[in-house]
Structure formats: C-alpha cells, structure tokens
C-alpha cells in the first residue's frame, strides 16, 4: 500500500517539477546572487574596481543614519496600516454581514481599491490632496473652511498620507475576507449566546473573534507582506520625502541602487530586508502551508 502511494505521488511530483525547477532558477539563484554582491564593492561609477570586501557593507549599514531611519519608517508603515485594516475591516465585515437593505452593492464596491493599480492609487490620493485643487479643499469649502493644507510638505503629515492611502487600499478587501469567514460561522452559536443574554456586539466579541482568530492571523501576515512591498504609492506620492520621513527600507534600497548606482550597498540593504522578513514571517507562512495540507 505504501508503495502505491509513493508511486502515485511521484506522478504528481512530475507535474510539480517544471514549476519547481523554474522557481529555483528565477527566485533562489537571484537571492543568492544578491548576497554574493553584498560581499563585494560594486559601484560602476566609481574608479574602484569590483572586488571582495567581506562584511564591510554590513558595517556601513549599522552606522548609516538614513538606513536606521528607514527601518523606523518601515515599522510605522507596517504597524499602523495593518492594525487599522484589521480593526476597520472587522467592523465593516460585521456590519456587512447583516445584509441590511441597500448595502449589497457595497460588497462589489469594496473590491475596487484592491484591484486598482497601486500607481493609480497613489495618483488618486495625490490629486485628492493637491492644495487648492484637490478634493480635500473641495470638502473643506462645502463646510465653509478654506482648507489649503500642504500635507506632503511636513514629515509627519506626509507619513500620515501614506498611511491613509495604504489603509484605504487594504481595508475593503480585508473586510470582504473577514465577511466570507464570518458567514461560515453557524447561526446556532449566536442563537445560543442570545439565549444566554448576550447582545449583538457582545456575541461577536465572544464568538466571532475567537473562532476567526486563525483567519485574522493569516490575513495579518499577508497584509504585513503587502505593507513591506509598498513602493509605487511612495514613489508617486512623496518619493520618500520630505527629509526621508516616508522612506522605508526597500525604497532606500531602490535609491541606493538606481540613483547612486551603489549596487553593492543596495544588495546589502536588500539582504537585511530579506532576513528581517523571513525571521518575522516565515514561521507563520510555514504554519499556514502546513494547515493547508
């Protein structure tokens, strides 16, 4: 019997093999190459030749105030948007679940931000906040206030704009994911709670959220990964500025590599980024994969 299973699996393995081999070539090898480059000096604009420098680049990393700042920015851009997406998404899912009159079209609408090209999302928000000509000024004028805020000019408000945009992109889809999970929870559980005297919100607190905890964790991991990959929105809205206030690690890597051609240093930043990513996310991802079996 065991032999038969093995035999069957080998046939399936053959179907997986082409993708597996392709993925090794297009993912593992590049990652190893990046690490290799990070141990060398490599700046084509410099008169200094390509050559081995060992861990030197990593040493510079630790002294580089711009890098340390970009770590801090990355943390902000993960923690706040993801927390907002999860809480707002849950609130919206609970509200949507009731299927109140006149709300079904919202379910379709909620798909929108998730599929809009991120570059366009950036543009949408950039246009919305243009001082004088943007929707913010318009909404202010409706309330009789002259709102000419130049939000992208100061570090804190620029970071705020990025956080708003990133939350705007992610929240509706998180809500829909939570909704589909909420709808699988048996009605009986809520009825039972109701009989025990629990109110509507209370029963969601004591029933829905504990049941959905694994789903929440999973969604969170995926949202963190999305937040790490944030690039087009920053590229278009702020270019990492002002004064580096919206420049997370991957953006700094881009600037180092493509603006200053410090290829080696860009590679070093990327390796550090990849390590951070793996340390925090890999355990969760492996758990998710195991559960999907």
């Amino acid at each position: 019997m065991k032999n038969i299973i093995r035999h069957r699996d080998s046939a399936y393995l053959a179907m997986v093999a082409p993708s597996a081999i392709l993925l090794v070539i297009i993912t593992i090898i590049p990652i190893l190459a990046t690490f290799y480059i990070s141990l060398h000096f490599f700046n084509p604009t410099s008169t200094r030749q390509f050559g081995w420098v060992g861990w030197e680049n990593y040493g510079y990393l630790l002294e580089d105030s711009r890098y340390l700042n970009s770590l801090r920015v990355m943390l902000w851009l993960i923690v706040i948007p993801v927390a907002l997406q999860i809480t707002l998404g849950m609130a919206l899912a609970i509200a949507l679940k009731e299927k109140l009159a006149g709300t079904s079209w919202m379910r379709v609408l909620f798909l929108l931000p998730a599929v809009i090209p991120p570059a366009v999302s950036g543009l949408v928000w950039k246009l919305f906040i243009v001082p004088g000509a943007g929707g913010v000024t318009y909404m202010g004028s409706l309330l009789g206030i002259d709102l000419q805020l130049d939000l992208l000019s100061s570090p804190n408000s620029a970071l705020f704009v990025i956080i708003v945009c990133s939350t705007w992109v992610g929240t509706p889809f998180v809500a829909l994911l939570f909704l589909s999970s909420l709808e699988t929870i048996s009605k009986d559980l809520y009825e039972a709670a109701h009989l025990d005297g629990a109110g509507w919100l209370q029963s969601h607190w004591s029933i829905s959220i504990p049941i959905m905890r694994p789903v929440i964790m999973t969604v969170m991991v995926f949202r963190i990964l999305e937040a790490l990959a944030i690039f087009p929105i920053i590229f278009i809205l702020t270019g990492g500025g002002p004064a580096g206030s919206t420049e997370p690690v991957n953006y700094y890597a881009y600037v180092s590599g493509f603006q200053y051609l410090k290829i080696d240093y860009a590679a070093t930043i990327i390796v550090s980024f990849f390590v951070i990513l793996m340390v925090f996310c890999a355990p969760f991802l492996i758990r998710i994969a195991r559960a999907a079996r």
């Binding site: 001082p131 130049d150 992208l152 000019s153 100061s154 500025g241 002002p242």
Partner: peptide
C-alpha cells in the same frame, strides 16, 4: 527661514 517664512506652499518639495 526664507523658504518657511516667505516661500510658496509646497516649497519643501
């Protein structure tokens, strides 16, 4: 000082 006191909105960038 010049930029902050007397510049146009958005001068920073």
């Amino acid at each position: 000082k010049l930029l902050n006191d007397f510049g146009i909105p958005g001068s920073v960038s």
